[in-house]
Design a protein around this nucleic acid. Structure first.
Lengths: 143, 143
DNA sequence: TTAAGTGCAAAGGCTTTGCAGCATA
DNA sequence: TATGCTGCAAAGCCTTTGCACTTAA
């Protein structure tokens, strides 16, 4: 893919090239939990000439601009997701591998209590809960 | 280091070799937050012939046996720590990099609420809070 | 012309694995 | 002897980086 003309909107002062637009679209469609490799695969299937380096560089830019969040949902690699309005956390099922998003007011309370007790100003809270979902529990997949 | 005679206690049915004993000692002394590379450096300084492969293999064994916990405190590598009685979580300062352990009853409440609302049985909760500690805040290191 | 984005390939860093040798039972 | 641990080296992955080319202002 040769770089196309700036496609209208810029992102944080950086031109929205065709590659960046494609990657942002894919991230939006994915609705979260895509790793760089998978994003690259999807990008290539739409445009065979996108490079993996551009995927990483774009993700790095999106992170800096606060457009996407980087999460560690497994041991090996990072997952990326479009930043959404409500703060949310993840539940990972060790049995079937699926990831569920959830929200809880307790997270906010926790952050506030840490600020009160330790004087920390927090700008990022990442909570990863692992266990077994109801289905895997009932089917005896849990150990 | 040639393998020494089993030094008394076995760990989970596996012999406590000199290497494993050394690594467990170092993990205990470290009191948490050591990555594999650092553990390897410390091990080598006490015994020049320990290999990095043994460090990883031992850590993997310790994890399986539940002796150590693996944490992701930064983007790059894992940290390991001896499993301690009280559940605790980590506060990471983005300014000076120091890591503070803390406990909160809210974590337990959170796990219970997830069980109630989603039916998940959780066996691992990893919370990583990032921000700026009081010192870095007052010195203006925070952005 | 200048600054910045891209693709390609190579390199970097962390982790795992294959293999042969040796120790323990 | 048989099993399992170790060191060494190589390979595997994920991610970053150097370079030359191209594009847009």
């Amino acid at each position: 893919m040769r770089r196309n003309r700036n496609e209208g909107n810029a992102v944080g002062g950086h031109p929205l090239t065709a590659q960046r637009r494609l990657l942002l679209d894919l991230l939006r469609d994915a609705g979260g939990h895509v790793d760089a490799r998978e994003l690259y695969r999807r990008a290539v299937s739409r445009d065979g000439s996108v490079s993996l380096a551009t995927v990483y560089r774009s993700l790095s830019l999106f992170k800096r601009l606060g457009l996407v969040d980087e999460r560690r949902l497994n041991r090996v690699c990072c997952c990326y997701e479009i930043r959404q309005s409500p703060e949310h956390q993840h539940l990972v099922c060790r049995g079937c591998g699926r990831v569920i998003e959830f929200r809880s007011p307790l997270i906010g309370e926790l952050i506030e209590s840490v600020r009160r007790e330790h004087g920390f100003i927090l700008d990022r809270a990442e909570l990863c809960l692992e266990g077994y979902c109801p289905e895997c529990n009932s089917e005896g997949h849990a150990p």
